[in-house]
Structure formats: C-alpha cells, structure tokens
Design a protein around this nucleic acid. Sequence first.
DNA 1: ATAAAAAATACAACCGATTGTATTTTTTAC
DNA 2: GTAAAAAATACAATCGGTTGTATTTTTTAT
Lengths: 344, 344
Amino acid sequence: MSEEKEITIYDIAKHLNISPTTVSRGLKDHPTINIKTRKKIAEAARQLGYRSNTFASSLRSKRTQTLGVIVPRLNSSFMSSVLAGMENAASREGYNLIIAQSLEQADKEMENVLTMFNKRVDGLLVSLAHSSENVRHFDMFFNKKIPVIFFDRVAPHPDSTSIIIDNFTAAYQVTRHLIMQGHKRIMHLGGNMLLNVYSERLRGYKQALQDHKLHFDEKLVITGNLTEECGTDTAKQLLKLKPKDRPEAVFSANDTAAVYCMIALKNAGINIPEDIAFAGFNNDPISRVIEPNLTTVNYPGYNMGQAAVTSLANHLNGDTNITNTNTIVLRSELIIRASSGKRK
Amino acid sequence: MSEEKEITIYDIAKHLNISPTTVSRGLKDHPTINIKTRKKIAEAARQLGYRSNTFASSLRSKRTQTLGVIVPRLNSSFMSSVLAGMENAASREGYNLIIAQSLEQADKEMENVLTMFNKRVDGLLVSLAHSSENVRHFDMFFNKKIPVIFFDRVAPHPDSTSIIIDNFTAAYQVTRHLIMQGHKRIMHLGGNMLLNVYSERLRGYKQALQDHKLHFDEKLVITGNLTEECGTDTAKQLLKLKPKDRPEAVFSANDTAAVYCMIALKNAGINIPEDIAFAGFNNDPISRVIEPNLTTVNYPGYNMGQAAVTSLANHLNGDTNITNTNTIVLRSELIIRASSGKRK
DNA sequence: ATAAAAAATACAACCGATTGTATTTTTTAC
DNA sequence: GTAAAAAATACAATCGGTTGTATTTTTTAT
C-alpha cells in the first residue's frame, strides 16, 4: 500500500494502453470520450491511487481556491475569533486560507501582499497595520481585479469592500450610557487616530457629549497603544490628580487597557464604579473576569470573519458582484455590566 | 501601468539578453550568479512587473513552500500564540501557512488532512482533536515521507516528532507547591484522559501526592471539557458538599475552568485561597485578572509554534533530520500567585 | 605566457496536465 | 460496398520555472 512514486495521467495511460490526452479528458468527463473508456479510466485512477496535480493544472487555469489573510497580529482574542470564523466559512465554501501577520508594520504588510500576490490567491482579506498610511501597496491586486476585502481596520478604496462595525454609533452608545448613569466628566482612552476604528470611536464619544450638552475637554482624551502597560500608565496619571480633578468615568477603546487601568486603580484603593466608572470595547474574555465586570461593546469577530469570506466567495463564484458593495456593517451591541454603575 | 500579459523569466531573459536559467537563479540569489547580474535581474523584474508563478515552480521543484497547520480551535489564547509563533518562524524561513481547524472532531480532522495532502504541503503541523483516537489518517503522509510534527496534543508515532512541554513534571510541581502551602486534600480537575496532555498532568498530580505520603482519592479527580461551564459546574458540585468535606485546594488542568470555578465560589461567599486554594494551567490572560491572581503554569505557546516550524523547516532544508528526533520538550514554569496561598 | 582552477552563464530536459489539431475508428447514408 | 459524416482517440506544443551538466569566461598559480 506504500506509494513511493506519484501516479500521473501518464501512468494511467500506460496502464490502460491509451493516450494521456484521453485520460485527461476522461477524468473530467469530457463528452468526446467514450463513456466506457471514462469508466475504465476512473477505475484505474482509483486503483493506482492517482491524485491530480493541482500545480500542473493551475499552470493554465487561474484559480487556486486559496484566500490570503493579512492581519496585524494573530494572537489577540478578537483576531483569533475572526480567523476561526473565516476558516469556518472558507472550509464550507471550498477555499483554503493562507494567513500572514504584519506585526503592525507597513513594510511587513507590503511583503505579505507580495507573497499573496505571487501565491496567486483568488482574493485577499486584510485588516490594516497601524503604520499603513495608504493602501497603494494593494494596487497590484486592484490592477488585476483580484478582489480585496478590508475588515475592521479599513481604508476607503473604490475597488474594495469594507466590513466593519459602526464604531461611531457603538462609541456613542457607550458614552451615552455613561452619561445616563450620571457621569459627567468622561475620559476617553483612545488608540491611533489614523485608524478608522479609533477615530470613529472618538467621534462617537464627542457627539454623545455634545448631544447631551456636555463640554468636550481635550485634556480628557488620551491616546496610546492600548496595551496593558498603556492601561497601567493611564492609571498612574489618574492617581497623580487630586481626587476631585479625576474624571468620573473612563471609556477605553479596548478592554485590555480598561482592565489593566482598573486593576492599578483598585490596587490604589479606588472603588469602581463608585469613584470612577469604566467602559471598554471588544468584549474580551478578561472583561468578564475583572471585578466589577466591564461594560463593553460586543465585537462580532467570528461573524466578521465569516461575513468577509462569504462575501468574497460569493463574488468569486459570480453569485454576487462585490464591486458594487462599498461597505458591510455588522451589528455590535453594548453590554452593560457592573463597571459602569452609578456614582456614589 | 496596467499589465495585460504576465511577465515570465523568459521576458526578463530576453530583455537583458541572458538565459532564462540565469534569471531563475538570479532571482533566488543563487551564489553562482554574479552579484551584479543579480542586481540587474532584480531591477528588470521590478521594472517589468514580474511575479513568480508558483505553480510552475512547484510543479518542477515538487515543493510548495507551504506548511499545513491543523488545530482543534483557532480561537483560544494558547492557540493564537502558537500560530503567531508559527507564522513568525514560517515567514522567516520562507514558508506560508495553510491553517485549518478540526473543531475537536476526528472526521473534520481527517478531511483537513486530505486537503493538506492534495494541496501538497511540504510538511504538516498538528495538534490533535479530542475525538481522534488514532493517527492512522496521517498514514498518507507517513507513507510518502512527508514530515508531520505533532505539538501539544500529540500521539506517539515512529515517523513523527512531538513538541510538548513536560506536563508530568509541571503538574508535579503545581501539586507539590499546593502541598507545600499546607493543602492536603487536593482536587484535580482534568480533561479528556485519552489526550497526553491531560493524562500526563494527572500522572504528575498522583506522583506528587504519593511522594508526599498523601492518599490518592479517586473521588477527588473530576474530568470534564474544561470550559467555562465546566468550571461553573464544578463549583456547584463543591458547594453541594459540606464545608468540611470540601477539598482544600483545586488543581485545574486549565485556567479557564479554574477561573470560572473561582468566580462561582466567590459569588457563594467562599474565600480564595483561605477556604479553597486554586492552581490552573496555561497562564492565560484571565489568570492575571481574576482575584486573587491564579497560580498557573506558563505554557510557551509562541515558542512552541516557532520551535515546531523551525524544526520542520530545518528538516526540509536538510539541515537536520527530524526522523531521528522523537520528542522536543520545551521549558515551562510554575508561576506562583495569590490563589494558592496558605490556608487560614 | 599558459595551464589549471574557479566563477559565471547557457543548454536542454523535465515537472504533469491541457488543448488545438490531426489521425484513426466507427457509424450512417445512399 | 463505398464515400461522407460523426465519434473517438492520439499527437505534440504549451504553461513557466527548475536543475544537472556542459560550456564559456574570468581568475589564479606557476
């Protein structure tokens, strides 16, 4: 049963004493091949353990049944959900995923794009790196009309579709919720404002303040990289202030920073939410472990991954044409937990 | 700038008036090609908008520069670290990753194996599904001498290498630590004992008890799927017992179950570690958020991913021969935190 | 200056399937 | 029975790199 050598159509041809052409056509049920011959070929193929060589055939055809995925980092709770959803949909649609990470670096992202291009992926799914200031490195895809879908961290481009949540509205709702809970001086801890996700959240925050006649104070907006350290540092800043100068609530653009900020404040004896309320973004697992549990926005990563791949696959199958679709907005939801409770 | 026709090495050759062979070798920095020629080729390639045709290349070289990865689930903290490490190493070694998840189902795993086989991956990296009772479905790889590396959830096989941590010793250390803290009746919350990782941890637990002259009580071993729910359920069981019958400490085979068990117990007014101490496994982010912080074992996922890919790549490059390597054991470490403190 | 060694480049076969065209075989029509 | 039409099969070029070996060019040694 051990097969040392790869079986080719030539082996089948020799075995049946017919030509390779007939075998090739027979294997794909070409109508000019006698039906009895086709049966014999199929039988021989199975018997000999033949498997088609996709490279040889792809040399001509164009499709690889492979999708490229480029993400900033693989190891975040959100991204791993996205990938799980993508893999699930891809598997269902008969595609494979080639995955690469940009590590937030624009040059690595460019490199990844090139690799995907050379690998002849049928389509590309991208969440942009921090340092990607434009999307010109995707032009090779656009020029060749290979579909590109941006998700989460997107950039507007006429030839591509974006899949996002409504960050503006989500942030608006978070902020409004905090306001409704009686908090007036609300701080926003945001990310890199060059990225749509963070700038939109800031915009939602501002709009909510304005709509509720609250003064927008520039000093209450801090931007950082939203890591653990960033959260801890923010806590340090807060602790330097006199208690009465401290904001009454903090709306962080992600859960990680919120949680580590909370931990540091709690260690300093500050009560949450009585002294300072908190809200985050993403609905990471840690948001349900921190005490008090963190109010946050559920970010449908799994669905986003599925949606992205499904759209792409439909486009490639010709079922729908994605070039007419500019943006797909997924539903997110505010999850209210104890951290955003009322003031004492 | 729009390129209708694909540029090939023949076009570059003609353009520079040299042979296609030289172009081919020049493009991959073959040392026998003059460095000035290489530069000229690279320049011409960029100018003409050349992209390598991987099909043609794979057809001839029989190598796809692609590694297959099959994991139970993509969206866990540990697995996403592993993948990040794998991607990092793969990128460095010039390989791409095709990733699929088995969702813990043996039949899905078999399907994935077949896909990877037909995609002609150069090697396979696998963490086994819960329900995989044997590894016969990998025989097509073994027969063809395509290297397979198992990591984390492994099965012994003469033709493959396993990359693991020393689960036995790690569990031994956790248990010993709990004993040293003064805990005597220690419960073990374990996973599917058909999997090496969980059976080894149980073994380490037992051995530590024995070495410290503690009686092993079968009733103190519970097995489950180690999910949040499993943790919560375990807490319910514990709460049903009379306080004096409760174990003094719980050693859970992962952090998720430990943390959710702790949360449920805390909600019921039980103090940790004064009433019951806890220790987990994996060093998930949640272990540093739960209060008290969870004593656990740091599981070097990122390193494991890197090590797996690096070994595979070295083997494929012929640098080392992996068939002589049975097992690679990575260092793990006990991380002592407050949850395993002394009894009141 | 010349032979030997090393470096650089070229030749040509090859990987395995596809496809337009040619050839052979079978069927149909008269 | 024979020519024309239809069906079935075969030939040979092709896709675009790769690679062992041969050839040419350059460098080194004597």
